[in-house]
């Protein structure tokens, strides 16, 4: 099953490689990984999307907690949470595609952030599955380039991951 794991860690050189190294050394999956500093400059927040049996996820959480640089770990799937990912897609916008792309972008509540003679660049945010759905809805031949940030997640309501 897919899990989104949030990690607060020391904002130090090498901390990212400790986490990435742990996943590869123990053969855990990483679907996506994002990391950036938080409002507290000494801390980074990482979001990892992974998958595995309950036993594997339990081990992942324990092994993450064991890393000295890791301050806190939260499996967002243990409660209610919101997941968002940002995607930029460059699509063909020539002939019939030009109107079609604008329409699809509107349906998925994306924004066209760059317009060129032959292409649009569309910005879209949402859950990973919404972004997948958008890509599926497009004619594959129309997609020139995609770039995705990987998921970020946050607990709903009072679920707060903070020191």
């Amino acid at each position: 099953m897919k899990h989104i794991i949030s990690i607060l860690m020391e904002n130090e050189a090498g901390a990212l490689s400790r986490v990435a190294g742990l996943f590869s050394a123990r053969a855990y999956n990483i679907e996506s990984l994002t990391v950036a500093p938080t409002e507290d400059a000494t801390l980074s927040r990482m979001t990892i999307v992974t998958s595995g049996s309950d036993e594997v996820i339990e081990q992942i959480i324990k092994q993450l907690n064991k890393l000295i640089d890791v301050v806190k770990v939260l499996d967002l799937n243990d409660g209610r949470f919101i997941e968002r990912e940002l995607m930029l897609v460059k699509v063909k916008a020539t002939g019939p595609f030009r109107d079609e792309m604008k329409r699809m972008c509107d349906i998925f509540r994306g924004r066209i952030i760059d317009v060129a003679d032959g292409s649009y660049t569309i910005e879209l945010t949402g859950s990973g599955s919404k972004l997948d759905a958008f890509l599926e809805a497009l004619d594959n031949a129309a997609i020139l380039e995609t770039v995705r940030t990987g998921a970020s997640g946050i607990g709903r309501g009072d679920r707060i991951l903070k020191l």
């Binding site: 036993e55 339990e58 081990q59 324990k62 092994q63 907690n65 064991k66």
Partner: peptide
């Protein structure tokens, strides 16, 4: 003493 040693190979 190590939580990750528990239920690693054997539940």
């Amino acid at each position: 003493v190590d939580p990750s040693s528990i239920s690693k190979r054997v539940k």
